[in-house]
Simulated scan of single mutants.
Amino acid sequence: MPNPYAALFDRVPVIRREIELLGSTTVYWEYGAADAPSTLIAVHGFRGEHHGLEPVVAHLDGVRVLSPDLPGFGETPPIPGRRHDLDLFVEWLTAFAAATAPGATVLGHSFGSIVAAAAVAGGLDTPSLVLVNPIGAPALEGPRGILTRLAVLYYAAGARLPQALGDALLRNRIIVRGMSVAMAKTRDPELRRFVHEQHDAYFSRFADREVLHDAFVTSVSNDVRAFAPRIAQPTLLVAAQKDDITPIEAERTLATLFPRAELVEIADVGHLIHYETPAVAAAAITRFLSPSGAGTR
Rank of each mutant, 00 (worst) to 15 (best):
R205M: 12
D243N: 03
G295S: 06
R17C: 15
D87G: 15
S38W: 00
P291D: 14
H50Y: 11
T94A: 10
R287D: 15
A98T: 12
L272I: 14
A201W: 02
E197N: 09
D244T: 02
F227T: 09
I15K: 01
R17K: 11
P134V: 14
H196R: 09
A294Q: 03
V152G: 01
P77T: 04
Q233R: 03
V269P: 03
R230Y: 02
D85I: 13
G32M: 04
A157G: 08
A159M: 13
V27M: 13
I146H: 15
H109C: 05
L40I: 13
R160F: 08
V56S: 03
S113L: 06
G81Y: 08
F194G: 00
P229K: 06
V132S: 04
A282D: 14
G122H: 00
Y28R: 01
G81S: 06
T76I: 15
P259C: 15
G122Q: 04
G178S: 13
K242R: 09
A117L: 10
R82P: 05
G74V: 11
A261D: 07
E251L: 12
R82I: 13
E91M: 09
P78C: 08
V14K: 01
G23F: 14
T235P: 13
A137G: 05
P2M: 11
G178A: 10
V115M: 05
K185G: 02
A240T: 05
G295A: 11
P2D: 10
L236I: 13
G72F: 15
N133E: 15
V152Y: 06
K185H: 08
Y154D: 12
D10M: 12
P2T: 14
T277Y: 01
W29V: 15
A239W: 00
D208E: 11
S204C: 15
A283W: 05
I248V: 12
R16Y: 00
R192V: 14
T256P: 13
R187H: 14
F9A: 06
I79R: 00
M1S: 07
N3Y: 04
P234R: 02
I285M: 08
G48C: 13
P55H: 03
D10G: 09
F258M: 09
D85N: 10
I245T: 09
A156I: 02
G45R: 00
E262H: 07
A228C: 07
R252V: 11
E265R: 00
E75A: 13
G270I: 10
P78S: 06
F203N: 00
P77Y: 15
L272S: 10
T186G: 04
T100Y: 03
R64V: 07
F194C: 05
I175M: 05
Q241W: 05
T246M: 00
T277E: 09
H199I: 07
R193N: 07
Y28S: 09
V14L: 15
F9T: 00
V224W: 00
V130K: 01
T186P: 05
K185V: 10
T105D: 07
